[in-house]
Design a protein around this nucleic acid. Structure first.
Lengths: 196, 196
DNA sequence: GGCTATTCCTGAACATGGTTCAGGAAAGGA
DNA sequence: TCCTTTCCTGAACCATGTTCAGGAATAGCC
């Protein structure tokens, strides 16, 4: 039964997500407009609400893509031969590069939930858990004496630290600095943490 | 010459900032409405735009207060007798406590600039510089061999790290954890950095 | 105090943008 | 082919920030 109707619906969904992604990437989440989206995707304004619950759902779909791409970029950044601290640095640098290259998309990842109050979708938690999983391996090598609970906290703490450094570092308006300096900050902190 | 007119204007500004602060504190920046503000402050809708350039300017005024209060909280948290690492931990804990106690106001500090693109007001940069100044003292004690430029980066890096830990830690929707755990994460990272 | 210019206040109106909906078009099934 | 269902359309609705014409209060001046 899902021959024409469903296919068209799926295509429309795809076009909408594509259009939203490109517009967010170009102009930021705050510039996303339902009417622009409809025009870009070649559909009527109301059709958006047939394909998606609301604009938010589209942004969520875009965030899903972004999160997958981010995870991929971090996964691909190391080959397993690095020493633990070095691997953390390499992964963090990949995180920074991704955030710097796709700032608006990356920022949308965090802007949406700040604003909204609905439940976080499963894929969101899972994607974050995946990232944490990548980090926890080198962390447990660096701190072999730590118990699991403490390791989890440390993993989270290091991710948050790197995220904070990247986040404020890319924030041109308050405390922005060039990416090389952000990279140096990440190195300073992670190396310092590894050298005890 | 600024007898009645100016006084009334000043009072209105004060009432508006007060009302905005209380509403942001209660419901978050996203729930701020011009019409609510006018009602709370007992003035007409249009009067807002006589006292302030726009809603943003009011939020900026609120942010100014918040930033001052935050700086005060951090300043007051240590007495100078602490060892450098301990002082960093104490200051960071004060930062966490403030953010936890006034989450919406604290978050407004960072939400606004993300969205907007105008120039950051001077007091903003100065307030941040003040915070950095508080941090740089213990940091330079911990790393006496570092050059000034490297110290500045490290100061910024540590502030960003703590900010990241607090920020993601208080984010109930992604990776929120109870404040005691946030405090433990801060301690883990800062102690580790001091112990080399 | 009275008079005029200025300044301020008011709330209706405007602009923008997300969302809905009645009516028509297309698809599915017989 | 015909009926049902489903979808699409864009005008309308609603919320919200901002502006503005007209009236009220104030300020300066004699």
């Amino acid at each position: 039964m899902p021959s024409k109707s469903q296919a068209r619906r799926a295509q429309l969904r795809e076009r909408l997500v594509e259009a939203a992604e490109s517009r967010i990437a170009r102009e930021g989440l705050g510039e996303l407009r339902a009417r622009d989206l409809a025009r870009d995707a070649g559909c009527a304004l109301g059709a958006i609400y047939n394909a998606f619950e609301d604009l938010n759902a589209i942004v969520m779909a875009v965030n899903g893509r972004t999160f997958r791409a981010l995870g991929q970029a971090v996964s691909d950044s190391f080959d397993g031969s690095e020493a633990p601290v070095q691997r953390l640095i390499v992964m963090s640098t990949a995180y920074l590069r991704f955030a710097d290259a796709h700032t608006n998309l990356w920022r949308a990842l965090f802007e949406l939930k700040m604003t909204q109050d609905g439940p976080v979708p499963d894929w969101y938690r899972e994607a974050l858990a995946g990232l944490f999983g990548l980090i926890s391996e080198p962390v447990s090598q660096i701190f072999p004496e730590m118990k699991r609970e403490e390791l989890e906290l440390m993993t989270r703490a290091l991710f948050s630290s790197v995220h904070g450094i990247v986040s404020l570092g890319l924030e041109n308006r308050i405390s922005g600095v060039p990416p090389e300096q952000i990279e140096r900050m990440i190195g300073q902190v992670l190396r310092q943490i590894g050298n005890n």
